[in-house]
Amino acid sequence: MKRVCKFIVAMSAVLFSPMIAGAQELSLFAWSEYVPQSVLDGFTKETGIKVTYETYASNEEMVTKLVAGGANYDLVIPSEYTVEALKKQSLLAELDHAKIPNLKNVQPSYMNLAYDQGNKVSVPWMAGTVGIVYNGEKIKDPITGFKDIFQDKYKKRLVVLDDAREFASWVMVAQGIDVNAVTKDNLAKIRPQQKQWMDLVRSYDSDSPKTALQSGDVDIGVVWNGEGSLLIQDDPKFKWVLPQEGAHKFIDSLCVPKNAKNKEAAHKFINYVLKPEVGKEIWEAFPYTTVNVESKKLLSDEQRGNLASFPANEDKLKLFTDIGEVMAEVEKQFSDLKGQ
């Protein structure tokens, strides 16, 4: 009998432990290849809060899963135009700045931007750009922008981000159209060139486009700067170019969904990742543009000189704004032109 009792106690402990632990858990929903495991472990060690990390590969995917319900997330990392969209639909909780003293470490130029005045619902996580990385051993011609790489001679030697809005924006800047002037007319206008360009692409990858470059399947990539930065750090044959036509500058922010269960833990996490040394840790794993002034000071001169991570000239970089309904058309055009 005693044994049976013990067994029941043990079983119920197993069964109910997730519920007990529920208060001490943080559900993070973020881009893949964006949050180092060591940072999650460090956070758990300091606060005792366990973190579950689920990933997505595009802002649109994240929004869909967020509004579809079912899963409950405590923290998401949308880009600036998606923060704007989520804020419009009041899907984000207001942040309590008093609980985030480390907010003072964030570089002022990344705060108080149009998409979230006063940073009521978002705290910058990392910033970055989209740019061109190429294998200098294979590509000898000078590369300065999109027009140099989307050439017939490079057919099927390109990997690009699997992102409809990004791809459309490259064609738009090449034609001198503002990246945020996404209208049906402009989409029709760029369609022929977009088709031409997409026919040259070998593969689409938003998660880890560097892999195709490393394995030698492709010689040119249009990728996130963090990916490019890792490539040029590891192998000097890779070169990074910020397209002269212009490019998307993104600011990804930590946000707490309105229906989050553990808002307290979410605030703790935000405060934790804004610590100078944690910011450095994040940068070393995923070298995007750090928004943390104190973290940047901890980097070596060589690290700070990485032009992929820290672009020298930001003149032609543009933030995206929310384009609303037209986004569906952007997606449609992108998939219509794929694999033809």
Partner: peptide, 12 residues
């Protein structure tokens, strides 16, 4: 294609 419509094009 189903995944794209449901997830990316946000047309569940």
């Amino acid at each position: 294609e189903i995944e794209r419509h449901a997830i990316r094009a946000r047309n569940l």
